[in-house]
Lab assay of single mutants.
Amino acid sequence: MPSETPQAEVGPTGCPHRSGPHSAKGSLEKGSPEDKEAKEPLWIRPDAPSRCTWQLGRPASESPHHHTAPAKSPKILPDILKKIGDTPMVRINKIGKKFGLKCELLAKCEFFNAGGSVKDRISLRMIEDAERDGTLKPGDTIIEPTSGNTGIGLALAAAVRGYRCIIVMPEKMSSEKVDVLRALGAEIVRTPTNARFDSPESHVGVAWRLKNEIPNSHILDQYRNASNPLAHYDTTADEILQQCDGKLDMLVASVGTGGTITGIARKLKEKCPGCRIIGVDPEGSILAEPEELNQTEQTTYEVEGIGYDFIPTVLDRTVVDKWFKSNDEEAFTFARMLIAQEGLLCGGSAGSTVAVAVKAAQELQEGQRCVVILPDSVRNYMTKFLSDRWMLQKGFLKEEDLTEKKPWWWHLRVQELGLSAPLTVLPTITCGHTIEILREKGFDQAPVVDEAGVILGMVTLGNMLSSLLAGKVQPSDQVGKVIYKQFKQIRLTDTLGRLSHILEMDHFALVV
């Protein structure tokens, strides 16, 4: 994948999101292997301009796509893939009243899908469409860049269908997702969380590099694949309309690839034109409109599966009536509230959605109805927002919020430890010299600072030695090549209790 991002070429006709291997024109390309080798690009942008032909009021008969309808489940399912879809609609009884809503608040519980998330729908649909058009064949390999849930859905379907599955996901995604993927037989590649989507090191860039190296491999490409919004247009939206008897006044959905909100909203605009569509985008993402909503100094966020630093091709923002931004604290607070007060075992993005819903639905009156999409299960986040310690460490809970008995030293300040200034190293000294210094002084790690004293990161003896043994660096290389740029900081005025929580999850903390 090139470091400079080429513009994806656009073909003359058809839909841009065809499933299957992508040609340089962004659509299915038939021909000899030699032709494909000559024409197939190194990668295709996940934010390529959409060429979708959908228009409100256009006859369904003019759609270029294969459409399906929700099917009634048999008493005995032939395999677990038949437990994807037909998820329950559940009334939220307490939270709406707590925040003064007059309307009825309903939750579409997508964590009841077989793999635990709304992404099971698009995973199965992308595979079925690729099999139907002859792209996927027995023994082929599926590769997908994902925040985890699409990966789980694909790995689940691949396990049943017999495909090899490789999932490329950023490091910030939970260990629970990784464990589930491994249990399903998927191979996992992790990428830096802070890598831009168009960087060769991003999950998108690495996935395309693997595709170019592995024979008979395919990126189904949830960011561009029409099967993504079509899955929701054909099934999720129809289920909502049936469950609500066609009567709903507002739908609120958090947005990642945009397939969920695009597919549902398009069908609702056709069948229930008075329904307002509300999009939820986390602070630090750029999906919301108008652009002024996205202006923030924050560039990272903890909530998973929603928000991006690019506009995915499948996201149709014209069908969203209003956007709201959400933050991590309210997302996790509301997710825990949904679990504790409503018994809905949902993930953090569901918290984002409901946090926005109780604001947006203030305009609705008694007798009206708001539906929220709860995308995934708490299963993926047992060591994250479900953990009091994690919430404390991230600053989303305060010590006084917890009532468990603490040891005698818990409320003492870090400054009472009488710490001395640490050994520091410059980023320009060599790895070999740094190892000598650390061994001589008896230290395992040291902060790396520039000549102005600005902290650049941390270097550890173990990481340097393993990097040297693996051949990633040489003793003569500058130590700046092996620094940890993500590390926890703590102030002298913070409590030892807070430091204790940090050290339970990290090997060190830097006192500043």
Rank of each mutant, 00 (worst) to 15 (best):
E4V: 10
Q7L: 09
A8Y: 13
E9M: 01
V10S: 11
V10Y: 09
P12R: 13
P12F: 06
H17S: 09
S19N: 06
G20F: 09
G20I: 12
P21I: 04
P21F: 04
P21G: 06
H22R: 11
S23L: 01
S23A: 14
S23Y: 09
S27M: 13
K30S: 01
G31I: 01
S32W: 11
S32V: 08
E34S: 04
D35P: 09
K39V: 07
K39D: 12
L42P: 08
W43L: 12
W43C: 12
P46R: 01
P46N: 03
S50M: 05
R51L: 04
W54E: 07
Q55H: 12
Q55P: 01
Q55A: 06
R58F: 08
A60V: 09
A60S: 11
A60T: 09
S61R: 14
S63W: 01
A69V: 15
P70S: 13
A71S: 14
K75C: 15
K75Y: 08
I76N: 15
L77V: 11
L77K: 07
P78V: 06
D79A: 04
D79C: 11
D79T: 13
T87S: 07
M89S: 01
M89L: 14
V90D: 06
V90G: 05
R91L: 05
R91S: 14
R91H: 07
I92F: 11
N93H: 06
K97L: 10
K98I: 14
F99L: 07
G100V: 07
K102A: 12
C103V: 09
C103R: 04
E104M: 01
E104I: 01
E104P: 03
L105C: 06
L105T: 11
A107V: 13
A107F: 03
F111L: 08
F111C: 01
F112Y: 04
N113Y: 05
N113E: 05
A114H: 10
G115S: 07
G115E: 07
V118G: 07
V118L: 10
V118D: 01
K119L: 04
R121W: 03
I122W: 01
S123D: 01
L124Q: 15
R125F: 11
R125A: 15
M126L: 12
I127H: 01
E128R: 03
E128T: 08
D129P: 01
D133N: 14
L136S: 01
K137Y: 14
G139R: 11
G139Q: 09
D140G: 07
D140I: 01
D140V: 08
I143Y: 07
E144G: 06
E144C: 06
P145R: 01
S147T: 01
N149R: 05
I152E: 05
L154A: 10
L156H: 06
L156F: 01
A157E: 06
A158R: 01
V160R: 13
V160S: 13
G162T: 05
Y163R: 06
R164C: 10
M169W: 07
K172D: 01
S175T: 15
E176S: 09
K177V: 01
K177T: 01
K177S: 01
V178T: 06
D179Q: 01
D179K: 04
D179F: 03
R182M: 05
A183I: 04
A183T: 10
L184W: 05
A186S: 01
V189F: 01
R190A: 01
R190E: 01
R190F: 01
T191Y: 04
R196G: 09
D198Y: 04
E201I: 01
H203M: 07
V204G: 06
G205C: 13
G205A: 01
G205Q: 15
R209A: 08
L210R: 01
L210H: 01
L210N: 05
N212F: 08
E213Y: 03
I214C: 06
P215V: 05
N216R: 01
S217I: 01
S217W: 01
H218C: 13
H218Y: 08
I219L: 09
D221Q: 05
Y223H: 01
A226N: 09
S227G: 01
N228S: 06
P229S: 10
L230E: 15
L230D: 06
A231N: 04
A231W: 01
H232Y: 07
H232W: 04
Y233S: 01
Y233V: 01
D234Y: 11
D234F: 07
T235L: 09
T236A: 04
D238C: 07
Q242A: 06
Q242K: 15
Q243I: 01
C244M: 07
M250G: 01
M250A: 01
M250V: 01
A253W: 01
G256W: 01
G259S: 11
T262S: 11
T262I: 05
R266C: 07
R266L: 01
R266F: 08
K267P: 01
L268V: 07
K269L: 05
E270F: 09
K271M: 08
C272M: 15
P273D: 14
P273S: 10
P273N: 05
C275H: 01
R276L: 12
